[in-house]
Design a protein around this nucleic acid. Structure first.
Length: 641
RNA sequence: GCCGGGGUAGCUCAGUCGGUAGAGCAACGCAUUCGUAAUGCGUGGGUCGGGGGUUCGAUUCCCUUCCCCGGCACCA
């Protein structure tokens, strides 16, 4: 006689075991129609699930986050069913839910074509129309193994073999299709109402590049057609923010085949770059760093000693001259240790903070390159802090503070923080790794950061805290990093004289805030859709003459502003004011000054923002004051009109 | 690097079932002197990514190579 407790606290008793569906129906026919699954005693179950004991029950509908996930998961099964019907030789593997959708990996003799995708999607719609009942059954592991082997599903058999012996497995069937799955699933295929297949791609079996490549089909699924439409619209909008597109449109930079993965910065892009560099210099000055500059090309022997060649060598560019092998530096740390090693250092010199806008080159795989976000030649806002173990907590706390201050100045508030621990390929004793990882954990918790663990993703010389931001279409890019290194200073003979006159090896903290200037600017462009905050805008103000008669005045206005340090230009072309406004607005110039006969006469300018707001006429002094206030705010907030 | 899709004018793209290409915008010229997101008219512009092959003839078909795009793997 189960007593069912609902989320509102009400209790319903039943004389005999009941299904989730029955309870939903008992509560109301509307809920029965909407029910997709349920959470019973903390476990997600199907609506067909029978409850025979007292249980806390929550019915899940498409309004719940879990509901949407279940729809997506069931949609992956629908995809697999359609593929099996159209291409019986294809083998199913896995089909998980991902952000905004799902994918399913198939083993098939040939890649699926875009035309195949259309056929598959049409079949999915057909199967959804048939509203096939989705039923769950349980099978002992051995029997399930036999079932999938008999069906020729070798990959499924492999998956089952990796599940501990003796466990029972659940299978889900819809029409002619049965898949191994933990569930839960929607009650019938008709509940999958809004979906679209988006792309095909190759993907390695079990994510290992040594394994065979499977055919992955991606799709998106939503509770209703409206949500699907909104999602597709969102994708289109995100595409418009693509930094590669904006970079070309705003004449910021370009790439060309002769230098793959390396940026040609144009005048306007380089203005942004320099502005950011200067900003970082200001931070370094305030926080007690020295700035250095080290060679691009350094003899191979140093990289062997540092451990880079063996752990990192396959992405290093090498060059040869007069019988000597050189590496084009992929990192700055060994070079910074060389500077540290000049002259005897005392414990009084620590913490010793050394920074460099370090130009690095890494021979990334061609397939990994991606605009400014993944390049082969880049500049890190790099620094290394040499300190004692006792100083680690204070230094890392200072860095965390710095990271957040800088990100806020650039207008970023959503930052993902991850702790990456020891990788397989590494240098240094496990005992050192234990201490380093513990120190970073302590710093994260001590500074009350919300962080996640990223096991095995540390640098080869030490664990790290990574800071990431999302790009316009949800891809996450790592920017800043704080890395603790107990190994490299020793390998490269760094030492200091301690208070007791003994020689000690310093600990080294590697850190970058923006990461690479290139990547950072890429993310920045996408974040602002090209409309960079005033302090970063390549051109901040353009003075527009209405007719030839105001040319002199417009020029003088631009000149005055330039003398005040504003990046100002004039547009004296014999064109309509509408055209000039249109063009400069599309170039995302923050302020446009219209100068006609009225303004010339009263020594004012009519100010218009790139958002189309008309601020009316004001004096140059008034404008300058507004500009300097806004620049001082950086990316933290936008002034009121 | 792997799988797939691409590369045609400065940009965005169409096209050629093999007979050396077209639009819009941009550029240039002329007219227009204008009040807040496109004034009008006219003109020029392409070794159809590179190399090789098949062919009377290749931008089109085949091979190869480079680069780009989407994933995968990688990402200190």
């Amino acid at each position: 006689m189960p007593r069912i407790t609902l989320p509102d606290g009400s209790v319903r008793s039943y004389p005999e075991p009941v299904s989730v569906f029955d309870i939903a129906h008992d509560i109301g026919p509307g809920l029965a129609r909407a029910a997709l699954a349920a959470e019973a005693g903390g476990i997600l179950v199907d609506t067909s699930h029978i409850l025979s004991d007292d249980t806390r029950l929550r019915i899940i509908t498409e309004r719940d986050a879990e509901g949407l996930e279940i729809i997506r998961h069931s949609c992956a099964h629908l995809l697999a069913q359609a593929v099996k019907q159209l291409f019986p030789a294809a083998q199913v593997t896995i089909g998980p839910v991902i952000e905004d959708g799902f994918y399913y990996d198939f083993a098939f003799e040939r890649p699926f074509t875009p035309e195949d995708l259309e056929r598959i999607e049409a079949r999915m719609h057909e199967l959804a129309r048939q509203d096939l009942r989705i039923s769950r059954s349980v099978m002992p592991r051995a029997e399930a193994l036999g079932f999938f082997r008999a069906a020729g599903e070798e990959y499924k058999a492999q998956i089952i073999e990796s599940i501990p012996a003796g466990e029972s497995l659940s299978l889900y069937s819809q029409g002619d299709f049965t898949d191994l799955c933990r569930g839960p699933h929607v009650p019938s295929t008709g509940r999958i109402k809004a979906f679209k297949l988006t792309k095909v791609a190759g993907a390695y079996w079990r994510g290992d590049s040594k394994n065979e490549m499977l055919q992955r089909i991606y799709g998106t699924a939503w509770a209703d057609k409206k949500a699907l439409k909104e999602y597709l619209h969102r994708l289109e909008e995100a595409e418009k923010r693509d930094h590669r597109r904006i970079g070309r449109r705003l004449d910021l930079f370009h790439f060309q085949p002769e230098a793959p993965g390396m940026v040609f910065w144009h005048d306007h892009g380089w203005r942004v770059y320099r502005e950011i560099e200067n900003y970082v210099r200001g931070q370094l000055r305030r926080r007690g760093y020295q700035e250095v500059r080290t060679p691009q090309i350094i003899d191979r022997s140093l990289w062997e000693k540092s451990g880079h060649i063996s752990k990192f060598g396959d992405v290093m560019f090498m060059t040869r001259s007069e019988e000597r092998d050189f590496a084009i530096k992929p990192m700055n740390c060994p070079a910074h240790i060389q500077i540290f090693n000049q002259g005897l250092k005392s414990y009084r010199d620590l913490p010793f903070r050394m920074s460099e806008f370090g130009s690095c080159h890494r021979n990334e795989h061609s397939g990994a390159l991606h605009g400014l976000l993944r390049v082969r030649g880049f500049t890190q806002d790099d620094a290394h802090i040499f300190c004692t173990e006792d100083q680690i907590q204070a230094e890392v706390a200072g860095l965390i503070d710095l990271v957040y201050e800088v990100y806020r100045d650039f207008g970023f508030t959503e930052v993902q923080v991850r702790l990456a621990t020891r990788p397989v390929k590494r240098v240094g004793a496990d005992e050192l790794w234990d201490r380093a990882e513990a120190a970073l954990r302590q710093a994260l918790d001590g500074n009350k950061l919300d962080w996640t663990l990223n096991p095995g993703d540390g640098a080869f010389y030490g664990p790290k805290i990574d800071f990431s931001l999302k790009d316009s279409i949800g891809r996450v890019w790592q920017l800043g990093t704080i890395q603790l290194d107990f190994s490299m200073p020793g390998r490269l003979d760094a030492s200091y004289v301690a208070a007791d006159s003994s020689r000690r090896t310093p600990v080294m903290i590697h850190r970058a805030i923006l990461g690479s200037l290139e990547r950072f600017i890429g993310v920045l462009i996408e974040h602002h859709a090209g409309a960079l905050p005033l302090w970063l805008a390549p051109v901040q103000v353009v003075a527009l003459s209405l007719t030839e008669k105001q040319a002199g005045r417009a020029d003088a206005v631009a000149e005055t502003l330039k003398n005040q340090g504003v990046r100002a230009e004039s547009d004296l072309r014999n064109e309509t004011i509408s055209l000039k406004i249109r063009e400069h607005t599309m170039q995302r110039v923050p302020y446009l000054l219209v100068i006609g006969a009225r303004e010339a006469e009263h020594s004012t300018v009519a100010v218009r923002t790139r958002d189309g707001v008309d601020l009316g006429a004001m004096s140059l002094d008034g404008l300058l004051e507004r500009l300097s206030r806004e620049i001082a705010c950086r990316g933290r907030g936008i002034l009121e009109g």
